[in-house]
Amino acid sequence: MDTVYLLITGFLSVVLINNLVLTKFLGICPYLGVSGRIDMAFGMGLAVTFVMTLSGTLTWLIDHMVLIPLGLEVTRYVCFILVIASAVQLVEMYLRKFFPPLYDSFGIFLPLITTNCAILGLCLFLNLWGIDSLLEAVVLSVGGGIGFTMAICIMAGIRENLRMVDVPECLQGAPITLITAGILSLAFMGFAGII
């Protein structure tokens, strides 16, 4: 029972309170770039969630099975980024071969994801938070991805409506998106303290 409670609080914490985009500033580039249309945003979010779950789990395993027992923590960053890059490549090839419809819907985002700092960021935070069970690492990785999807979809929804608004010329584009993100992050601060 304790484990379930722990997993639920961890999940809520990473989705709402420590949302990767709005409080840790990870994955801002795609957040500003692709979040113009809600269906695109959802596709991107799915792709990120998928890769994040995979690479979060893989890097946690490598960290705890190989690097820590061998005392090679110093090469952690190099290993992590290589794991992420190869995971993305593998997923891309696999999808293109076996699930063409799925590849058509979100495959185009996959190459972009290697340099998405949310993925590496989550892997590093898993290490920083001292997560010591595989189950927890998986749950937090999924949560991180869902948090990203949620943030990017909310933003896309707002931006679809923002098109009909008379924004001052100098604030159009990225500036107004950042200001909106600021107000969103203020709203998300309200979740702090629920756990």
Binding site: C170, L186, M189
Partner: peptide, 25 residues
């Protein structure tokens, strides 16, 4: 205090970019 929090980062950068756009124009 809000400027030290995440919201401050987004707002300040947003307005700074707006200012840069204004100067360029």
């Amino acid at each position: 205090a809000a400027l030290s929090m995440p919201v401050g980062a987004f707002l300040t950068l947003g307005f700074l970019l707006g200012l840069v756009a204004l100067i360029t124009k």
